[in-house]
Design a protein around this nucleic acid. Structure first.
Lengths: 191, 191
DNA sequence: ACTATAGCGGAGGTATGCCTCCGGTAACAA
DNA sequence: TTGTTACCGGAGGCATACCTCCGCTATAGT
């Protein structure tokens, strides 16, 4: 619905610190948080994350005053990558563009679980991020529909929830995840 | 793999108490636990469950000495219903039998989330329950495959994880859940 | 080299959940 | 009705997580 040309700001007010040691810690925290949220969901222990990052719990809370701030930082980062990825596939054929993007979605989104769990959250910031992601992906989907490749009785919301639901779930291995994803996407394709 | 004729025992050693008040509490606990595990996942608070059931925490622990016992009681009950449901659809046409069972799976399984989360658990009891469920569902799937209705490059494990993954996830409403499930199942159908 | 200060990190207060224990209550039999 | 005892339920000990506070450390500018 929102159709600005330059992607909407989607900025988080978490500033990267100035001093070198602080920046190292900041980045380590983000990386650890990304892993933790991905493997344990949004309720991962913050103390674990700090320990994993090799910093004290105090440092975590200085950079990210509460759980939500940390989650946002990771989450919005990934959403932004997804938006960029959507732009990059724009010149592929409709169906390829869509599936390529969705596969990138699966690869990139280390926080799959967190993304999924937060799909229903009603925070302002989450709604904004969701909107940005939808704004990026919807055109790809509509193009595939108009090209007669994707079913018209399916909404983009259906599709995205299906994909993220599947990818967030735990499969035996990556191969099975891909296989199942492909199967599910086949259901979306016009036969 | 196990192919006994009468469904394997799959019994939990949780005996329903004798006295009338005790039985009431026992049943209330099971019902509350079913709800809680469904809505909050396997990590739902046991104190909440007791409160919800209107009994003291002590009563909960007398009936189910630990979280696992309670989870098993709920979980195995549902698995058992699923096994019975599989027998009941045996005389439908192959594809209908399969999808009917899967839809029943979605309806019955109030503990969808718990079932899903436990799919990867390596407890003995979980492995047993999983085996029972697979033993019940696999014939339906193989029949659909042999009838040329279901793809042969998909395993029953793929299918079940796809379905339970989807149903465990949170959708906007039941209609969307059904819609997405149908789409995904279309991907399994031979075109 | 020196110093001001941004940044560190863990001790500890608060909250919440798990599970045990035991004094009291009420169901059921006689 | 009365006694036995199965059963109740919450207080409280233990563990864990959240988050704050503040004395110490190490960076970066001069």
């Amino acid at each position: 619905m929102v159709s600005e040309q330059s992607r909407p700001a989607l900025q988080v007010d978490v500033r990267r610190p100035q001093r070198a040691d602080a920046r190292r810690n900041f980045d380590a925290l983000l990386a650890a948080a990304r892993d933790a949220f991905a493997s344990k969901g949004v309720d991962a222990s913050l103390e674990d994350i700090a320990r994993q990052a090799g910093v004290g719990i105090g440092t975590l809370y200085r950079n990210f005053p509460n759980r939500q701030d940390l989650l946002n930082a990771v989450y919005f980062g990934e959403i932004e990558e997804l938006c960029i990825a959507a732009e990059k596939v724009a010149d592929l054929p409709p169906w390829d563009a869509l599936t390529t993007w969705l596969h990138r979605f699966v690869e990139y989104a280390a926080t799959k679980r967190a993304i999924w769990e937060s799909l229903n959250r009603e925070t302002e910031s989450f709604k904004a991020a969701r909107a940005a992601m939808y704004a990026a992906g919807t055109p790809l989907f509509e193009r595939a529909q108009e090209a007669g490749e994707a079913r018209k009785d399916v909404s983009f919301d259906d599709l995205l929830r299906m994909v993220s639901g599947l990818t967030a779930a735990g499969f035996v291995d990556q191969a099975q995840r891909d296989r199942v994803l492909t199967i599910a996407l086949d259901g979306v394709r016009v036969r």
